[in-house]
Amino acid sequence: SELMNSSKLIRMLEEDGWRLVRVTGSAHHFKHPKKPGLVTVPHPKKDLPIGTVKSIQKSAGL
């Protein structure tokens, strides 16, 4: 199965306009000026399962 580095996923979010608002432990929480909701990324993780990545991307509207 495909894995993604959390840094790469965070870069994709930031390029889309998401900004880090809070860190709780290894959970990084992002908000967007125009899009609704809060997106949480486990970080640092070298090997996020593709299912997790897809669900984060979906929440972020990517």
Rank of each mutant, 00 (worst) to 15 (best):
S1M: 10
S1H: 12
L3V: 13
L3W: 07
L3N: 14
L3I: 12
M4R: 05
M4W: 15
M4S: 11
N5E: 13
S6Y: 04
S6P: 03
S6M: 03
S7T: 13
S7W: 13
K8Q: 14
K8A: 15
L9Y: 02
L9C: 05
L9A: 04
L9T: 02
I10P: 00
R11Y: 08
R11K: 13
R11W: 11
R11A: 14
M12E: 08
M12R: 08
M12G: 04
M12K: 06
L13D: 00
L13W: 01
L13A: 01
E15Q: 08
E15H: 10
E15T: 07
D16L: 05
D16P: 00
D16G: 05
D16H: 07
G17R: 02
W18T: 00
W18C: 00
W18A: 00
W18V: 00
W18G: 00
V21W: 10
V21S: 08
R22V: 11
R22Q: 13
R22G: 14
R22D: 12
V23T: 08
V23A: 12
V23W: 07
T24D: 14
G25Q: 14
S26T: 10
S26E: 15
S26K: 12
S26P: 08
S26N: 12
H28S: 06
H28L: 06
H28R: 08
H28W: 09
H29K: 10
F30N: 00
H32M: 00
H32I: 00
P33N: 08
K34V: 15
K34S: 10
K34M: 11
K34Q: 13
K34C: 14
K35Q: 03
K35F: 03
K35V: 03
P36E: 09
P36C: 10
L38T: 15
L38Q: 09
L38Y: 13
V39T: 04
V39C: 04
V39D: 00
V39A: 04
T40D: 05
T40A: 12
V41K: 00
V41L: 05
P42K: 05
P42S: 05
H43M: 03
H43N: 03
P44T: 05
P44N: 04
K45T: 08
K45D: 09
K46H: 09
D47Q: 09
D47M: 10
L48T: 03
L48D: 01
P49M: 06
P49I: 03
P49W: 05
P49T: 09
P49Q: 07
I50A: 10
I50E: 15
G51E: 15
G51M: 10
T52M: 14
T52Q: 11
K54T: 07
K54P: 02
K54E: 15
K54I: 13
S55K: 13
S55V: 07
S55P: 02
I56V: 07
I56E: 02
K58I: 12
K58M: 11
A60V: 04
A60W: 00
G61H: 05
L62R: 04
